[in-house]
């Protein structure tokens, strides 16, 4: 029995080593950069739209609040940046929903994969999608720095904590979308299923386990704790560290599984 277990472990180790070696052979920083740049270029119109949407939304909220500013800068921020959570889930869907599936569905994989390794392709594309999260979160970060300086003459550190936390939230959504996109044949199908999973499936899973931390969208409620550490969400005392751990527990496996599925999928 002991021998068998060792054998299994050994086999797995060998396979992992082989995979690792193969990946090293295929990886090329230049190719990753070219794919990353092209992916950003490919969705140029989407970035313009995102920029306009972000500017309009934050400017409107911030301008309205600027007429009768709350006494505390943190309250001001909770009212502005606290709003974007629900948009993040749509935005990431917009960029990551069909990013891998469409390559197979539309047939571009037939030309792309004969010119670069899938490892490079996956990393390049994923980095481009994560960049969209950075850009989207960067807009309110930048605007809030300006508004808080103008209205309160200070920039609280919590704003930067919020930025990092929201990048993690966005990254988790992206990882889930990438996984569905790597599994499903059609981009639209992948988008619908992943969105349904985030909005309903994971929520049901969280309810079933009796704690809200188990679903990623809870992070949108939990974010309030960054600006108000004593905040409760009605029933639960929010523990941000739990939320962060759960987000990572979604992000890392989803990303790894998406990668493994993507690289072995037949075209």
């Amino acid at each position: 029995m002991k021998l068998n277990i060792l054998k299994i472990i050994n086999l797995r180790g060998d396979k992992l080593m082989a995979l690792n070696l193969e990946m090293k052979r295929n990886l090329s920083m230049n190719q990753i950069f070219v794919i990353y740049k092209f992916e950003l270029f490919l969705h140029r119109k989407r970035y313009y739209l995102m920029l306009i949407l972000g500017l309009v939304m934050y400017n409107l909220t911030a301008i309205i609040l600027a007429f009768s500013p709350p006494p505390d800068v943190k309250l001001f921020m909770a009212s502005t940046v606290g709003q974007i959570g629900s948009l993040l889930v749509f935005l990431t869907l917009f960029f990551a929903g069909g990013v891998l599936a469409d390559e197979f569905d539309k047939g571009t994989a037939l030309t792309n994969f004969t010119k670069t390794g899938r490892d490079n392709f996956f990393i390049g594309k994923s980095l481009a999608v994560f960049t969209s999260v950075l850009i989207w979160n960067g807009i309110p970060l930048f605007e809030n720095i300006i508004f808080s300086l103008a209205l309160y003459q200070q920039v609280p550190l919590e704003l930067f904590s919020w930025f990092v936390f929201y990048c993690l939230v966005g990254g988790t959504y992206v990882a889930i979308y990438l996984l569905f996109s790597a599994i499903f044949r059609s981009g639209t199908q992948a988008m619908v299923m992943a969105f349904f999973f985030i909005m309903a499936g994971a929520t049901a899973f969280g309810i079933l386990l009796g704690a809200p931390y188990y679903f990623p969208i809870y992070a949108e409620i939990a974010v309030i704790q960054i600006f108000d550490p004593s905040a409760v969400d009605g029933v639960f005392i929010i523990d941000l560290s739990y939320v962060i751990i759960m987000l990572l527990a979604y992000l890392i496996p989803c990303l790894v599984l998406a990668y493994l599925r993507f690289r072995t999928r037949d075209v």
């Binding site: 190719q31 070219v34 490919l42 047939g107 571009t108 037939l110 030309t111 004969t114 010119k115 670069t116």
Partner: peptide, 30 residues
């Protein structure tokens, strides 16, 4: 394989909203 071989497999598909110049440039850089 990527550098020494050129493939035209099945019916080729391309990203629709780019131009031949852009897509061929992309492939060259890759």
């Amino acid at each position: 394989l990527y550098r020494r071989f050129g493939f035209l497999i099945d019916i080729p598909a391309f990203y629709g909203h780019v131009t031949p110049r852009k897509i061929l440039g992309y492939y060259c850089r890759l």
